[in-house]
């Protein structure tokens, strides 16, 4: 009756997990960059924060799903 392992392949999990990682990468690092911009009256922290967040989110996705 009961199996020991979840039988479903990881596709539907991975789809939403990747989406969540990308979104939180942009929100966290982009948010930090935006805050620095507001604080220091500059304009480039937001963009670099977004790029950094996107880069680290892609790195995390590669760590989780890319390397085998």
């Amino acid at each position: 009756m009961s199996s020991n392992e979840p039988k479903r392949p990881s596709e539907d999990n991975a789809f939403w997990t990747i989406f969540g990682y990308m979104l939180s990468g942009l929100l966290i690092w982009g948010g930090i960059g935006w805050g620095l911009d507001q604080w220091l009256n500059t304009g480039f922290f937001l963009l670099s924060g977004l790029l950094l967040g996107m880069g680290s989110a892609l790195y995390l996705v590669w760590l989780r799903f890319g390397r085998k």
Binding site: M22, L23, L26, M54, V61, G66
Partner: peptide, 25 residues
């Protein structure tokens, strides 16, 4: 194929989310 598909999906998704965030900020 699975890692390649997910990495490709992540790269495509990155562009869409960039558009979303930049539309707001």
């Amino acid at each position: 194929l699975q890692p390649i598909a997910f990495l490709g999906f992540a790269l495509a998704e990155a562009l869409a989310l960039f558009g979303l965030v930049l539309a707001f900020v």
